[in-house]
Design a protein around this nucleic acid. Structure first.
Length: 401
DNA sequence: TTTCCTTTGAAGGCT
DNA sequence: AGCCTTCAAAGGAAA
């Protein structure tokens, strides 16, 4: 992972982003060619720009929380400034002044996430005595403890997912509602920078560690306990799963999903993701840069916490999926009217297909399923697509040109 | 209960 | 180097 080879603010990471931006530039051109109207763009941009205002006005509870945060933020600003200097030459302070306090949900916690636009904002969590600020930070530090009983001092100690530590087990004996339940959020800086001197970040359980079930509810505090400490367990705890760090788009999705759901009254994630994908392309580079930078920090912290982790570790379904894909390809080669081929044949973009993103005609209504489209039917499919595309253009695209 | 859908980006493997 | 595959999140739908 070359982009992580150096400490914060590494040039390699910047290069990566330059590449990304180059791609984005190409994508911007694509967008202009595609069916994105100026009105769409304006709406999207204005909505993005005004998001914070909207959030504030629409969520009194959160506003009060933010007021509460302010003092805490200022309290920590000096600390964070020094952090910025160490990690990024203070870039966050200058480029993204509020960065560490971005209300991004935890990228690793499926249940405890908190987002500015999310309706999952948990007042309950804060009522448990947690400082509200903690919900604003991008990482979880479920096991944050200002005075942990056993501080691992061995800097060579690696990934916390290894069930080797009585050191770690101490973090799980925190009472419910205490700091041990601090939800999503302590950011990339938290482990290494907020736990006090002597605390190595890799000595702390991390939210990226997920139980095999993927549900944090089932997160067992004894997961890391030595076997002899828990002599009688009906089942041997399975190896916890360390999730991939979220990329820029995933972070953006997490933040914006609730907003899109509210705006579009859609619930189907696939449709929402299509919209979010289009909005992502509509973002300016500066707006995207915020998420690229967050993602870079995610990767950096993830690598610090789990140096030996590989994305390959989670390729559990590889064999299964490969097999299925091969079978599908075989089916599709036998069936010239498969959806993908059909769409490709008639020049409908797989990603921006009008039938999909605008949802004016559910794809499911099209005769595109392999079972229903056979060799002689592409003509019908073509005609339908032409009709649908025309209708879609007239109703959704043309009026805004 | 499990898998699919749908998006973008990162990473790893293969050619 | 370029391509392909998988997985990150999300939750309803389908199998």
């Amino acid at each position: 992972m070359p982009q992580l080879s150096s400490g914060g603010g590494d040039d390699q990471g910047a290069n990566d982003e330059m590449i990304s931006f180059k791609d984005e530039g190409e994508q911007d051109e694509k967008i202009q060619e595609n069916a994105f109207t100026e009105r769409d763009l304006a709406d999207l941009k204005s909505s993005l720009v005004n998001e914070s205002e909207t959030n504030q006005s629409s969520n009194a509870v959160r506003r009060s929380q933010q007021n509460e945060h302010r003092g805490y933020q200022e309290k920590h600003r000096e600390h964070l400034d020094s952090v910025s200097k160490h990690q990024d030459g203070g870039m966050y302070k200058t480029a993204y002044p509020g960065y560490p306090f971005l209300m991004l949900p935890d990228p690793y916690l499926p249940n405890g996430s908190v987002s500015p636009s999310s309706n999952k904002v948990s007042v309950v969590q804060q009522s448990h005595g947690m400082h509200p600020l903690t919900s604003l930070l991008p990482y979880s530090n479920d096991h944050f403890n200002p005075s942990p009983p056993h501080l691992p001092t061995d800097m060579s100690q690696k990934g916390v997912h290894r069930p080797q530590s009585q050191d770690i087990s101490g973090f799980y004996s925190l009472p419910p509602g205490g700091v041990g339940q601090m939800p999503p959020s302590m950011g990339w800086f938290s482990h290494s920078l907020m736990l006090g001197p002597g605390m190595h970040p890799t000595g702390i359980p991390h939210p990226a560690i997920m139980p095999p079930s993927g549900k944090l509810d089932h997160y067992d505090r004894n997961m890391y306990a030595k076997p002899h400490q828990e002599p009688k367990r009906e089942k041997e705890p399975k190896k916890p799963v360390i999730k991939k760090p979220l990329n820029a788009f995933m972070l953006y999705m997490k933040e914006m999903r609730a907003k899109v759901i509210a705006e579009c009254t859609l619930k189907e994630s696939a449709a929402i993701n299509q919209i979010l994908g289009r909005r992502w392309h509509a973002l300016t580079r500066e707006e995207q840069a915020k998420y690229y930078e967050l993602a870079r920090k995610e990767r950096q912290l993830h690598m610090q916490l789990y140096p030996s982790w590989s994305a390959r570790d989670n390729y559990v379904r590889a064999g299964k999926k490969k097999r299925r894909k091969r079978e599908k390809q075989q089916d599709s080669s036998a069936d010239p009217g498969s959806p993908k081929k059909c769409r490709a044949r008639f020049g409908l973009n797989q990603q921006t297909d009008w039938c999909g993103p605008c949802r004016c005609v559910p794809l499911g209504l099209l005769p595109l399923s392999p079972s229903s489209v056979s060799a002689p039917q592409p003509l019908l499919c073509s005609a339908l697509h032409a009709l649908i595309s025309l209708t879609c253009f007239v109703t959704h695209i043309a009026p805004y040109r």
